[in-house]
Design a protein around this nucleic acid. Structure first.
Length: 807
RNA sequence: GCCGAGGUGGCGGAAUGGUAGACGCGCGGGUCUCAAAAACCCGUGGGGGCAACUCCAUGAGGGUUCGACUCCCUCCCUCGGCACCA
């Protein structure tokens, strides 16, 4: 008998599938394909690691299952090859990014991805750093610009001193750069933003109906951070000015004993008294130079402006301060200080010896701020109200007396997309002294990224492209006079925010032959193939890629380019493969490459081993200790099936048939729910039963079993399928159905409990009645010993399953 | 602090109201072998018992129920996310 040799058979089938285009989706078919998407990789480091195999393997197993169920599964793959991650790696190894991407995409694709045995359709490959792709990334920028959704404005932004570029809010993690973990600093700069905040409400609301992992949805809800409250105007004493504050607790306004402005607030330096001017200016300047982390120290310090404003309900003057703990980026950049009922204000008031007035009863405000609910006190005509009611009544009062209005705020900020780096699509904008900011005409796209020898970040706040005069110098497309190009490139998350729209149309002959295309996609194809049916990926992109993509899709929908506003019908987050207790990463040096495992055991074993680690949404710790166990399983499958095929036995067994159908149901339901670990376990159980009844096996049963295993182990099953004499691919065979008659057991085991504890079991026909079961049970010696001289007080009967006697 | 997911044998995990520990790893014993590896077979939560068997056990404590890993309450711990969001 031939031995299981994964290396040989996997290579053979991969070649055959590629040559015969076995899994290519027919673009002209009338049926809508099943669009099975997985997150494309950054081709930056040494290669794919087993975490990628986990992500791709799970997604592909699902795709193969859907394919067997009769769908035309479209499973594209590509490379997210623009961006800081690739550029930084190029700098590190001393290569030009262009060269790095050429080398690594080839290596990833040919030496790693093609060895996984996935359905990837490489004829639709997308590489984001190629001009035939980023031309359209620039096109999307122009559409948003024309619609007023892209805006250049001066704003305090986060600057990473190590990456030497600005970052979006989402790319700053606890005050540190998402990529290099350097502390970011605040800078006031003129930058390009996408107005994602215009979609705050829709981004939040649609979460109620899209079929996504709850964890991802909850992270997005948190990030959008909707909060309902009231905006209130406080008149400045002695000046014709008002300070606007935002609060979710208008019920506490009678306790507002001071006012605080953020250092960046434009009134801060306007209202300051002559005596305090120098000190306040110094404080504001000092804040500007601090890093995000330094600014978020717990101690509450600030400085008095020498000016007062009037609490609009008590009419009393309250002092105005400037302090770091109030952020310009949220609300109005000013707050009313209510020390009795806000712990930050409490800390601040203690440090500055300010008055603390209790207006909600229920706590001990001498000791700490009371933030809970209670009855209103010291609040004039509102005294005695419950605080929840007080919020409503006082905000009504404020609104009707025109001292403020109700307002909903969001934490979400506009998406800063400028990057002062080289490796990205140049932002397609021209600055002209006559005409101002002029978009590059669509016919002039792409704005090619020139090959810069010295591409490293400059650190001056200017992008590397700013050194290239031949790039910058341009004729204004409106007036024809000389003008200058924008030299920043766009954020890499813009590249990946629309790649799923490109895949179906990528590489299509129809597009090429239709002359100069006007759209990044063929609308007929897009209409039929999109949105994405299933998207699987890591949850680290919950508020990055996944939020940006939803925004871009909504914007393109509202501009009339596509007919759906949510990109992914279904999204499932998979867990993380960790190694040695830590997340796999190059900096930790614990990355595991799949290559050696594929060499030793084959891709089928590696894929299955990873999926068997545990629940797919939880990930697992990669230790190669147990991988041999999975290889053993596939070996046993190989040996048993080969024997049966060679013998071509005709015998059969009714119990085996039952288990086969039960297993079919179980595997089917488990794959649908991405419960790969238990699906594999039930396949193992079935194999164990088959092995123990080897002489009763027949070819039909083995063939049925191979179908169930096919989505997990595509090569092994294809090889054995061929050995049975079949000519077509097993993956083109339908998914086997299970028959109800095999699922129903004729005889069942009834559990007999005494007082809820298992004492005995009873073999009986499944239709056995309660009375009959009780009669038989109390006759059994063991039960008799319990019930002897005892009264049965209660009998609980679960049909065909359980009998509980309470004595 | 807030939001989310968890806590079950030596380990990864299974069981979402009905026989706790499926399946796999590891470990122990055996068959085969000159020997080893591989393969195969048996055993494997803890305590007690020669045994039939029995008691204990799903982070801790309480509750609901004939019956709780599963539902409810209080608390502890771990992981992930956010974090001076007013």
């Amino acid at each position: 008998m031939e031995r299981y040799n994964p290396r040989k058979i996997e290579e053979r089938w991969q070649k055959k599938w590629e040559k015969e285009k076995t899994f290519k989706v027919d673009i002209s078919a009338s049926k809508k394909p099943f669009y099975n998407l997985m997150m494309f990789p950054y081709p930056s480091g040494e290669g794919l690691h087993v975490g990628h195999v986990y992500a791709f393997g799970g997604s592909d197993t699902f795709g193969r299952f859907m394919s067997m169920r009769g769908f035309d599964v479209f499973e594209p793959m590509g490379f997210d090859s623009f961006g800081i991650h690739s550029e930084n790696y190029a700098i590190k190894i001393g290569k030009h990014p262009r060269q790095l991407i050429d080398d690594t995409t080839t290596y990833f694709r040919e030496k790693q991805m093609k060895r996984l045995g996935a359905l990837f359709d490489w004829s639709h490959q997308v590489i984001t750093s190629e001009s035939n792709y980023y031309k359209w990334t620039q096109w999307i920028f122009l559409q948003l610009f024309k619609a007023g959704l892209a805006e250049r404005k001066k704003a305090p932004v986060d600057w990473c001193p190590s990456c030497k570029t600005v970052l979006a809010d989402e790319q700053v993690i606890a005050g540190k750069c998402e990529r290099c973990e350097a502390q970011v600093v605040q800078k006031e700069l003129l930058q390009w933003f996408f107005k994602i905040t215009k979609y705050s409400e829709k981004l939040l609301k649609n979460l109620d109906w899209i079929d996504w992992s709850e964890t991802t949805k909850s992270m997005q809800r948190n990030w959008i951070g909707r909060s309902e409250g009231t905006e209130i105007n406080f008149p400045v004493q002695g000046r014709a000015l008002q300070i606007k504050v935002f609060t979710t607790r208008p019920d506490t306004i009678f306790g507002a004993t001071f006012m605080v402005l953020a250092p960046e607030h434009d009134l801060a330096l306007k209202i300051v008294s002559a005596n305090n001017k120098a000190k306040v200016e110094a404080y504001v300047q000092e804040s500007k130079n601090k890093t995000e982390i330094e600014r978020t120290q717990k101690s509450k310090e600030g400085i008095f402006t020498g000016r007062y404003c009037i609490n609009p309900v008590t009419k009393k003057p309250i002092p105005i301060f400037v302090a770091n703990y109030v952020l310009m980026g949220y609300g109005t950049g000013a707050i009313m200080g209510v020390p009795a009922h806000d712990s930050r204000d409490w800390d601040f008031a203690k440090g500055h010896k300010l008055e603390v007035i209790e207006v909600i009863s229920g706590g001990n405000i001498q000791k700490e701020a009371y933030v809970g609910e209670g009855k209103l006190v010291n609040s004039g005509k509102f005294n005695g109200l419950d605080s929840v009611e007080g919020i409503r009544k006082i905000s009504d009062y404020i609104q009707s007396n025109k001292i403020g209005k109700k307002k909903t705020n969001y934490h979400l900020r506009d998406w800063l997309i400028s990057r002062q780096r080289y490796w990205g699509p140049p932002i397609p904008i021209i600055y002209c002294d006559n005409c101002g900011t002029v978009p590059v005409p669509e016919k002039d796209l792409p704005v090619e990224l020139p090959y810069l020898k010295n591409f490293k970040p400059t650190g001056t706040g200017k992008a590397p492209l700013a050194q290239d005069e031949s790039f910058i110098k341009v004729v204004c497309p409106q007036c024809g006079k000389s003008a200058r190009r924008e030299t920043d490139v766009s954020d890499t998350f813009l590249d990946s925010s629309w790649y799923f729209l490109r895949y179906p149309s990528a590489g299509l002959d129809e597009l090429k032959n239709a002359g100069p295309a006007l759209l990044p996609w063929d609308p007929r194809v897009t209409k039929k193939w999109l949105p994405v049916d299933m998207y699987i990926g890591g949850n680290e992109h919950a508020v990055l890629h996944l939020m940006y993509t939803r925004f871009i899709t909504m914007a393109l929908h509202d501009l009339g380019f596509i007919n759906f506003e949510e990109p992914f019908k279904k999204f499932r987050a998979h867990g993380l493969v960790i190694h040695g207790g830590e997340k796999m990463s190059k900096s930790r040096g614990n990355v595991v490459s799949p290559n050696e495992y594929i060499d030793a055991y084959g891709a089928d074993t590696l894929r299955m081993y990873l999926l068997f680690l545990g629940p797919y949404d939880r990930g697992g710790d990669f230790s190669d200790r147990a991988i041999a166990g999975m290889h053993r399983f596939l070996n046993r499958v190989w040996n048993l099936c080969t024997k049966v095929i060679e013998k071509n036995s005709k015998s059969s067994d009714s119990q085996l048939l039952k288990t086969l159908h039960k297993t079919t149901k179980k595997v089917e339901e488990d794959i649908e729910n991405l419960k790969f670990n238990t699906a594999i376990a039930s396949l193992m159980e079935f194999l164990n039963e088959m092995v123990s009844k080897e002489e009763k096996l027949n070819l039909a049963l083995v063939k049925h079993f191979l179908h169930l295993l096919a989505p997990f182990a595509p090569h092994l099953t294809e090889e054995l399928w061929e050995k049975t004499g079949e000519k077509d691919s097993i993956h083109k065979e339908g998914w086997p159905s299970y028959e109800k008659k095999f699922l129903e057991e004729g005889r069942v085991t009834i559990v007999i409990q005494i007082n809820g504890k298992l004492r005995d079991t009873l073999e009986a026909h499944r239709d056995i009645k309660k009375e009959e079961a009780v009669r038989l049970a109390v006759d059994q010696a063991k039960i008799k010993s319990y019930t002897l001289n005892k009264t049965i007080k209660k009998i609980v009967w679960v049909e065909g399953k359980l009998l509980n006697l309470v004595i």
